[in-house]
């Protein structure tokens, strides 16, 4: 199915938000699920988390960071344009229940996928603490939205230009785990893999169950190809159908990082090709 772009908004230098017309998916999706899209005939299939949805209006929100050719192309589309293909909702929904105090951590553009989970955790009656972070103030996204669905919130920046000076993992440890003021029942973390790994190292020390959402490379996202495989607890799992969420303490992060780099050279070649073509006014 194709999908029309209804709204577009730039959230920070490299992060964009699109609202898509996708009534069937909007009706079915649950927190933690994602879509796969293809912009044009020669395009890749890329997975993006459903950051929000309005079943009544039949709309979906996706928020993405420009990291290569496909996301750059996507950022160049405008309201009124259409995506060639949109499929979803894919993946297992987040397991949401009332368990007490939940910390939702989002790093960089990871705030977008953690937002619907935070919302669901809050609606389930949990005490929700959010920690969102980025390299600097200008890269913080969705602070207001996150505030609205959290009981407490900490904003961190690596350079100290805003909020807590340091990484999200440090804020979590220093403000909560070390003090022991509040019993933390669960942590949900989404962001760059090194961030999730660092965070899991911290929560392991304190024995706090931690769920991470993995962004392995995908092709079909229906469980058919195995491109997305990761090792969790010594077993091979497919992120697209078994995940994307897994027990962070069991994930082989080194393997995930290696696998994300398989196409580094070709991705660069593809992006350069795209940029050159654009400069010459030839389109993509």
């Amino acid at each position: 199915m194709s999908a029309k772009i209804l709204e577009k908004q730039q959230l920070s230098e490299n992060v964009f938000k699109l609202v898509l017309d996708a009534p069937k998916i909007a009706k079915k999706r649950k927190a933690g699920q994602f879509v796969v899209l293809r912009i044009h005939e020669e395009g890749e299939r890329i997975p993006l988390t459903i950051a929000d949805a309005d079943p009544a209006k039949g709309t979906l929100t996706i928020i993405f960071q420009v990291v290569g050719k496909s996301t750059a192309h996507l950022s160049g589309l405008e309201a009124g344009d259409s995506l060639l293909d949109l499929v979803g909702p894919m993946g297992q929904p987040t397991h949401v229940e009332k368990i007490g105090t939940v910390v939702c951590v989002g790093g960089g553009v990871g705030v977008a996928p953690v937002y619907p989970i935070t919302q669901a955790m809050k609606n389930a009656g949990n005490h929700v603490i959010s920690i969102i972070g980025a390299r600097c103030k200008d890269l913080i996204i969705m602070e207001e939205e996150m505030k609205a669905v959290s009981d407490e919130i900490i904003v961190t920046t690596d350079d100290g230009s805003y909020g807590y000076h340091g990484f999200v993992s440090q804020a979590l440890e220093e403000k909560y785990l070390m003090t022991g003021d509040k019993k933390i029942d669960m942590v949900v973390a989404i962001g760059p893999v090194p961030m999730m790994r660092a965070l899991c190292d911290v929560t392991k020390k304190y024995n706090v169950p931690t769920v991470v959402s993995l962004n392995s490379i995908m092709v079909d996202a229906t469980g058919m190809c195995g491109a997305c495989r990761v090792t969790v607890g010594g077993k091979t799992r497919f992120v697209c159908v078994d995940g994307p969420e897994f027990d962070g303490h069991q994930v082989d992060f080194k393997e995930l990082i290696d696998r994300q780099r398989i196409y580094l050279d070709q991705e660069k070649q593809c992006y350069d090709h795209y940029c050159t073509c654009r400069q010459q006014g030839k389109g993509a």
Binding site: V219, D220, M224, C225, A227, R259, I262
Partner: peptide
């Protein structure tokens, strides 16, 4: 089997 460069035939052919 999960090393980079090891494909399932499905992925390779797809």
């Amino acid at each position: 089997e999960n090393l980079n460069g090891v494909y399932s035939a499905n992925e390779y052919l797809t």
